[in-house]
Amino acid sequence: MSKIAVKVDDLTVAYNYKPVLWDIDLEIPEGVLMAIVGPNGAGKSTLIKSILGILKPIAGSVSIYGKPYDKQRQKVAYVPQKGSVDWDFPTTALDVVMMGTYGSLGWIKRPGQKEKKAALEALEKVGMLSFKSRQISQLSGGQQQRIFLARALVQNAAIYFMDEPFQGVDASTEIAIINILKALRKAGKTVIVVHHDLQTVPEYFDWVTFLNVKKIATGPVKDIFNDDNLTKTYGINYKVSIQE
């Protein structure tokens, strides 16, 4: 088996001291395109956010390529939920994508030509180059999602975390995004996606984690994406027809 990209040990997270995630152990091998699935309130976003240090866990630890997350930030990129920001903010698409370079710049230093070039390349990858000077509120939901994706691409990370990137986007954006994700995997990157639509899991992903407060199962889609695990996760007798 290949290297472990993300390792989560005994992670427990509570909101207002109400438990959300319980004793999660998770190993994500390098180079997989993984979906995290589970019912609403299962702690999917929470898992990503606590791996990324946005939320403070009560217990447990996270390591990225064997080192603590703090030392490996440069290797990680994050695509938050589209609804988490104010899209009426006075800024342009290019500006938002440029924000992806801020992390490598560090404090005070300003982005220059090199950063701009990287941002433009990322915009082109997501098919949004012609929208670069567009005010972000004038973009459609799908276009906004692509901008967020481009911002993460600019970070040129090894591991990508995405929180529901297919939420409220049009069909063509969904295809564009999944193609980019597949290209990332091909390039040896690890992609972890919080996902809602169970139907598309076998088609889009090769790795899956079932989550409902506890970790139910994790592994290759072809081995573990079955009715048994779905029922365990969603609590009801869940049947999904897996396409060949």
Partner: peptide
């Protein structure tokens, strides 16, 4: 614009 992202 995006506080959570800034943290990451």
């Amino acid at each position: 614009f995006d506080a959570d992202y800034t943290k990451t």
